[in-house]
Write a protein that binds this DNA or RNA. Structure first.
Length: 684
DNA sequence: CCGCCTCGAGTTCT
DNA sequence: CTCGAGGCGG
């Protein structure tokens, strides 16, 4: 008799899986991540294996996908397009290999590894050397006829090169490159259309347009990876690897990164290497497909359920996840801007626990229709910064609350300001404790006065005790005051007295050293609105001293290249405020240098060049490299544009290197960059 | 007035 | 890294 607990669970799992299958395959609008779906499937398979009496022909494990939608013609796949079993780590991969080795009576075999494209699987039938039909995978047995759309994809040959079987079917994955995806979304944003969440969704959406002209306008691509069947073919390949070569010879696009390997250890290393490097790919891949190379062996191994035993998908850890939005908090920035952020039920995304994510501003929240209590899709933008993609609308219970900014500042309760046409709401109270703290943290930060040993905790404690009321006060602190404060903190952390004294001493000497920072650093540190590092540099060069800058009129300021009316007004406003002038005077009396140090005439061997640095460099920090090329007369920015001359790519470069290639900028390795410096007369 | 390009400001996690 | 917004040229 069946275990009733298992029966209930199996039924529940099937309902879930059927529903999500439908979302994914029919609507192209998944609401859980692939990893979560895989987990449901895995649990069902395990339960069915333990309770074979519960298996029915209708179970999702017994079929490949959902029924196709009605709008397109239906095409039968005489040889069904199978799905793949998944493994998630090295152990499971080794277990698969052991199983296959056993089934082959211990014989050794080669394997082919291919990146698993995150796109849409298609089958293309050629007759007499011409593309006859193209179809989606559908449920594996019946797909949608989308020939007209596939014909628009330029990497699909309409006519075959050279000798080919009279009739045959090739299989491949249609996808959108990351660059193509961004381009498409920018276009849609301009037209006010809803944005696609990721390249897979938009690729699927593009291929299944009823109007082929829309498909044609999208930068779709294809990698072909298998021969489904063939009639009247003489001298056909005997291995999968040869099949790939054969397909390439016929004019199909085959992923050049595929490899044939002899041992499972090499296969595992290949998979693990791509887990690390996948973000360097110009397209999205969600795993590596491992196939037994010998087609005779494939036949012998056969198919179980709907999964071949001769292939397996090594899945990458998910980049997206879903979780609940518990609440929306608000931070107050140094300029008084109110910045909402998401408080999330902790969730693992690509190996990191995410608890918070920026939500930018109220308009952004409304545009994405994010509500408190929603289940939301979370991803790490550029694989790093957590980001809320959007809500899963169908999981709403009606208990969700729309987010509204409060009327008053969450810290000081001053009524907030919402200037018309501006996205950011602000707290106008310059005495707001939140602003004071952010301003002080900014003042001591790297790139500003760069005072090491003054972290968030110390800044907060100084303000709290009233030892510091404005940024200039830190230059009047005594060693005793700091020691007492640091000791107070140490009691909690259990450090001993000597450490406390040392820390206080370090802070005092760091404060002392900061008095000699260049004028630009001080201008930046003051936190004048619209004056960041670059503008501070311009101002320092032009005016040469803080006094000269303070005396400048708005008209004088606008003479400086890159400074327009807004920035000029902001600077003038800063120096017409009594309180600010008092702070500047206190800094001067404390002995902070407010003049530009006389600058040596600069060498300019790299005059006119634009550099962008990306990735991790061995011999420089990124800012170090930037200031070095600036000293040599070049410019350094963080965005690759048409004006960029060189992109210097270190270890693990991001998307910038790709963009550089697109725009035709030269990409240099660190070696080549060092070489360039030598030629420019810099000693290594 | 629009479409670049740059800069500023705020951000997460280890 | 992302988004907003200022500056500026066409």
């Amino acid at each position: 008799m069946a275990d009733p607990v298992a029966r209930d669970r199996v039924e529940w799992l099937r309902e879930q899986i059927n529903y999500h299958n439908y979302r994914y395959h029919v609507l192209d609008s998944p609401e859980i991540s692939d990893a979560q779906f895989d987990a449901l499937m895995q649990e069902l398979r395990t339960l069915e294996a333990q309770h074979p009496e519960l298996v029915t022909p209708e179970s999702p494990t017994q079929r490949v996908g959902a029924a196709p939608v009605e709008a397109f013609g239906v095409i039968d796949h005489p040889v069904p397009l199978l799905s793949l079993g998944n493994v998630f780590n090295r152990e499971e991969l080794l277990a698969w290999h052991r199983r296959v080795t056993g089934l082959l009576d211990g014989r050794a075999f080669d394997m082919v590894c291919e990146l698993k494209m995150d796109g849409l699987a298609v089958a293309l039938v050629y007759e007499g050397g011409r593309l006859a039909t193209g179809a989606t995978r559908g449920d594996g047995y019946h797909g949608e006829e989308i020939t007209q759309n596939l014909r628009t994809i330029k990497s699909i040959p309409l006519v075959i090169q050279g000798a080919a079987p009279r009739r045959f079917e090739v299989r491949g994955e249609v996808f959108l490159t990351k660059a193509g995806f961004e381009q498409l979304n920018q276009e849609r944003a301009r037209q006010g259309l809803p944005l696609y969440a990721n390249p897979r969704n938009s690729g699927a959406g593009s291929v299944r347009q009823l109007d082929p002209r829309i498909t044609a306008a999208r930068p779709l691509d294809i990698f072909v990876y298998a021969l489904g069947w063939a009639e009247d073919g003489a001298g056909m390949p005997a291995t999968h690897w040869e099949t790939l070569g054969f397909l390439k010879d016929l004019g199909f696009r085959v992923n050049p990164l595929s490899v044939r390997l002899g041992s499972i250890e090499e296969v595992a290393s290949f998979c693990e290497e791509w887990v690390e490097r996948r973000h360097t790919l110009p397209y999205e891949a969600d795993g590596v497909v491992v196939k037994v190379d010998n087609l005779g062996y494939q036949q012998q191994l056969g198919v179980v359920g709907r999964e071949p035993r001769w292939a397996v998908a090594y899945k990458f850890p998910a980049i997206q996840g879903t979780t609940r939005l518990l609440d929306i908090g608000i931070n107050v920035g140094r300029t008084g801007s109110l910045n909402p952020y998401a408080i999330l039920k902790p969730v693992q995304v690509s190996g990191v626990t995410i608890r918070h994510a920026a939500l930018h501003n109220e308009e952004d929240i409304l545009r994405k229709d994010i509500r408190i209590g929603d289940v939301v899709i979370v991803q790490r933008a550029g694989e790093v910064i957590p980001e809320v993609v959007g809500p899963v609308v169908s999981r709403r219970t009606g208990q969700e609350r729309e987010f509204r900014l409060p009327e008053g500042c969450p810290v000081c309760e001053t009524p907030i300001l919402r200037p018309a046409g501006e996205a950011m709401a602000r707290c106008p109270n310059r005495a707001c404790p939140a602003q004071g703290l952010e301003l002080l943290k900014h003042f001591v930060s790297r790139g500003a006065m760069d005072i090491e040993g003054m972290g968030q905790a110390l800044c907060a404690a100084l303000l709290e005790r009233g030892l510091v009321k404005d940024v200039a006060d830190i230059y009047y602190l005594t060693a005793e005051q700091l020691e007492a404060l640091v000791m107070g903190q140490n009691k909690r952390t259990g450090n001993d007295i000597a450490v406390g004294q040392k820390r206080a001493g370090n802070a005092i000497s760091a404060i002392e050293q900061s008095k000699a920072r260049p004028l630009a650093s001080i201008l930046f540190a003051l936190g004048i609105r619209h004056v960041g590092g670059e503008t501070a540099e311009l101002l320092a060069q032009r005016f040469g001293s803080l006094a000269a800058l303070a005396a400048a009129s708005e008209a004088d300021l606008m003479q400086v290249e890159g400074i327009g009316p807004k920035v000029a007004a902001s600077i003038a406003a800063y120096f017409s405020d009594e309180e600010n002038l008092r702070i500047v005077e206190k800094l001067r009396q404390a002995g902070v240098a407010l003049e530009a140090a006389p600058t040596a005439p600069r060498a300019t061997p790299l005059q006119g060049l634009e550099f962008v640095f990306t990735g991790r460099l061995e011999r420089f920090t990124r800012t170090g490299a930037e200031s070095l090329v600036k000293e040599l007369g070049a410019n350094a920015s963080s965005n690759v544009t048409r004006k960029t001359s060189y992109v210097v790519a270190g270890e693990e470069p991001g998307s910038k290197a790709d963009r550089a290639r697109q725009l035709g900028a030269k990409v240099l390795s660190e070696e080549e960059f060092l070489h360039l410096l030598e030629e420019a007369g810099v000693k290594g």
